[in-house]
Design a protein around this nucleic acid. Structure first.
Lengths: 136, 136
DNA sequence: GCTTGACCCCGTAGTTGCTACAGGGTGCAT
DNA sequence: ATGCACCCTGTAGCAACTACGGGGTCAAGC
């Protein structure tokens, strides 16, 4: 499988595949006589793992740890669970933060009645945190 | 007011203040004989506006437009409203996306029963998108 | 008068996770 | 032989900072 095929098979940009190889997230594949990268099934599976983890918001470093774990089937699984749980917490924190932010924005946007900038409630609200109901 | 005081007054990193000046988001202040930056109240207000907007998730470019508007009090306010409304939409989209992601992660994390990596449901789930209930 | 420490200056490079070139080589069909 | 799709490398760009190296300034204390 050449890089273009792997790209289509996994929905990953070619540049991104090469980038993952460069940073050591994917192993360097064999090369053809013309120096083209030649991939096979385990490469595809690993890249799928990486992409899926990225889609779920894991950082490259977290994925590195998760890959290390899956490369070493005898190791204790609890670290994977710990990484995923911590990530879940971060996602929940982010949702909470964005929700506060949304409420604040909704309040601000709702106040605009048109008119000129001098009287604009949106601009006024941005300039003065005291208009806010909650921390953000 | 020297840069350190402005930093404390607005909760902004000194490096960030200089960065904002460099990219033209804040005007260059006067300098003392020793070439120190010397700020006054309008600078503080502007930086407060910028920080508050950043806290609400506006991009630097959006803030640039909002500042232009507030610098020109005769202009129509509707652009500020448009920028804020579009941003609100983006925040809502992001919340929806993170919520889907959280549900998927919750499902994955919940499946770990301990044991070794070879049997780990977390690692299995990351390797195969077909385990997922919804798009993400 | 000299040191100490807090503060300030500038310019550049690093961060994350890619993405986009520029400038070249390969392989196959027409 | 000419066109085209595909591949290669290396480097630079993105957002919004943050950190660092190597220096200057200033007031207080000995």
């Amino acid at each position: 499988m050449k890089i273009g095929e792997l790209s289509r098979a996994t929905g990953t940009n070619i540049e991104t595949i090469r980038y993952y190889e460069r940073i050591g997230l994917l192993p360097a594949p064999h090369r053809t006589a013309a120096n083209y990268r030649s991939y096979c099934e385990p490469h595809r599976a690993r890249l799928t793992f990486v992409r899926h983890s990225r889609d779920l918001g894991f950082t490259i470093d977290e994925i590195r740890s998760l890959l290390d774990l899956s490369d070493d089937p005898g190791r204790d699984c609890s670290e994977a669970d710990r990484i995923a749980s911590r990530h879940l917490e971060q996602v929940e924190d982010k949702i909470a933060q964005l929700t506060r932010l949304r409420d604040e924005l909704t309040r601000i946007v709702g106040r605009c009645r048109g008119g000129v900038a001098a009287d604009c409630r949106v601009i006024e609200a941005l300039g003065d945190h005291r208009h806010c109901k909650s921390a953000h």
